[in-house]
Amino acid sequence: MKPIILCMGLISVSLILGGCSSVGVKAWERGHLAEKKMQLEPYPLDSFLDDHIYFSKEGSSGGRGAGGGGCGCN
């Protein structure tokens, strides 16, 4: 229960920081969202290599994808 509360709190903070009075955009407002740099993973190989490094050096993993394993490094 605690993590759910924590996450809901974080979403609220993010929305407030975003200063949004309304959520969402119209089709003609998507120009910036289509740019590569605005993607959730704009450089997938950077993310892939980071995940590999930290998977082998830390106790926790996950969050970004439903993967896991594939490596005897941990």
Binding site: C7, G31, H32, L33, M38, L40, R64
Partner: peptide
């Protein structure tokens, strides 16, 4: 969730 024309939020 698209928050605005320059703002995205993801929760997994």
């Amino acid at each position: 969730q698209v928050i605005g024309p320059k703002h995205l939020l993801q929760l997994n």
